[in-house]
């Protein structure tokens, strides 16, 4: 079966609620995958497409909040929408701090849930796109030799070839050679583009 365009995961231990939410989401043409427990979800094979998670807070075994923490700790950045029978303020604050996109109290308005789902999928899509570009840049950067990286750092810093040669105590010809390799390997059309690439790389490095 071909992977869908996007997917919504629903985890709720209550069959009635699970089935109702599934039906509601399908009624707007989205793909849904339901689970009766957090463990079941973790054990599943999930397609690598933009997705979001609709999660019941109160569940036997691993609770919704516990699962959210595990996902965050494991570096899995899936947007989470919480639904709960009795949401209190400390609980919702905790969930939002951990990165939940929405916190809905049952019974919720259908539009609220659907809006939250589409917003979550969009944000996941954008994130995935962004992280895909950075991954590409990182892989290009990975091809550079240590000397080439040094040269790139100094080029991006705005130094002239002569200055770079003095700095690294190598000949100006050699600098030119390295510089050419850098532009080639990073697939940069201009110095300006190389500078932008360097910025994004340092941002993602700082972000991690």
């Amino acid at each position: 079966m071909k992977d869908p365009d996007s997917i919504v995961f629903v985890i709720d231990d209550d069959r009635s609620v699970r089935e109702a939410i599934e039906s509601l989401i399908r009624s707007v043409g989205l793909t849904v995958n339901t689970f009766a427990s957090a463990q079941e979800f973790k054990a599943s094979n999930r397609p690598n497409v933009p997705s979001c998670l609709v999660l019941d807070v109160r569940m036997p075994g691993l609770s919704g909040l516990d699962l959210q923490r595990e996902l965050v700790d494991g570096g899995m950045r899936i947007p989470v929408i919480f639904i709960t029978g009795h949401g209190d303020i400390p609980m919702s604050v905790r969930a939002m701090k951990a990165g939940a996109v929405e916190f809905l109290t049952k019974p919720f308005r259908d539009q609220d849930l659907l809006d939250a789902i589409s917003a979550a999928i969009e944000s996941d899509r954008a994130r995935r796109l962004q992280s895909g570009e950075i991954a590409e840049l990182q892989s290009r950067f990975g091809q550079l030799t240590p000397r080439e990286r040094e040269v790139m750092d100094l080029v991006v810093a705005g130094l002239l070839n002569k200055q770079i040669a003095m700095n690294l105590k190598i000949s100006e010809i050699t600098v030119k050679l390295h510089r050419h390799q850098v532009m080639e390997k990073m697939k940069a059309q201009s110095l300006a583009e190389l500078v932008r690439m360097a910025e994004r790389l340092s941002q993602s490095a700082a972000g991690n």
């Binding site: 399908r26 029978g85 009795h86 049952k106």
Partner: peptide
């Protein structure tokens, strides 16, 4: 709390099913 939860679950499901039904 337990009674509230027990009653609220089917009620929430009913509301959601109703909404889904309308959408279908």
């Amino acid at each position: 709390s337990s009674i509230a939860h027990e009653v609220n679950q089917p009620l929430a499901a009913i509301v959601t099913n109703g909404n889904a039904c309308l959408r279908w």
